[in-house]
Amino acid sequence: MDVFMKGLSKAKEGVVAAAEKTKQGVAEAAGKTKEGVLYVGSKTKEGVVHGVATVAEKTKEQVTNVGGAVVTGVTAVAQKTVEGAGSIAAATGFVKKDQLGKNEEGAPQEGILEDMPVDPDNEAYEMPSEEGYQDYEPEA
């Protein structure tokens, strides 16, 4: 019985440690998101679009440190934060509304985080759909 109880105690310690790591990862992701939003706020009209992409990228980098179902929630929060940063930029006159959601080359930025393969159960990952990809044929 002692062996059984000791095993359960060790398992509990492992769960607590994993929860603490997840909590730490979420806190880091939130900190990076805040950094990115402050970065966007300090940019001029020309830099705002690039700044919004930076927020998304920093958040995406930190999301990889967070495991399990938390990833889905962090990704949703990050996307809403990026959308909010863009709205703030438009409201303050840093950028025109028609410039939001495009990178410096004018290509749409939507789907940055949505296409990231995420499995809350950590069982399997699927690649994003290939609808947006084109076949590449090298020139002879």
Rank of each mutant, 00 (worst) to 15 (best):
M1I: 00
M1C: 00
M1R: 00
V3G: 05
F4D: 00
K6E: 03
K6D: 02
K6N: 05
L8N: 00
S9I: 11
K10V: 14
A11C: 15
K12S: 04
V15E: 00
V15W: 05
V15A: 03
A17P: 00
K23L: 02
K23M: 06
Q24R: 07
G25R: 07
V26M: 15
E28S: 14
A29L: 08
A30E: 00
K32D: 00
K34P: 00
K34H: 04
K34A: 12
G36P: 01
V37A: 09
L38F: 11
L38S: 05
L38P: 00
Y39I: 10
G41L: 01
T44R: 01
E46D: 10
H50W: 08
V52Q: 00
T54Y: 10
T54S: 05
A56W: 12
A56V: 07
K58W: 14
K60Y: 07
K60H: 04
V66A: 07
A69Q: 11
A69K: 12
V71C: 05
V71G: 02
T72L: 04
T72H: 14
G73I: 12
V77N: 01
E83I: 04
A90G: 09
A90W: 12
G93M: 02
G93C: 02
F94E: 04
F94G: 01
V95R: 13
K96E: 06
K97S: 13
D98C: 14
Q99R: 08
L100W: 02
L100D: 03
K102S: 02
N103F: 10
E105T: 12
G106L: 04
G106R: 08
P108E: 05
Q109K: 10
I112C: 10
L113A: 08
L113N: 05
E114S: 15
M116H: 14
V118I: 06
V118W: 05
P120Q: 14
D121W: 11
E123F: 06
Y125V: 11
E126K: 09
M127T: 02
M127K: 13
M127C: 07
M127A: 02
P128W: 12
S129Q: 05
S129R: 04
G132A: 06
G132Y: 13
Y133T: 05
Y133Q: 09
Q134H: 02
D135G: 05
D135Q: 12
Y136H: 10
E137N: 07
P138M: 06
E139K: 13
A140S: 12
A140W: 13
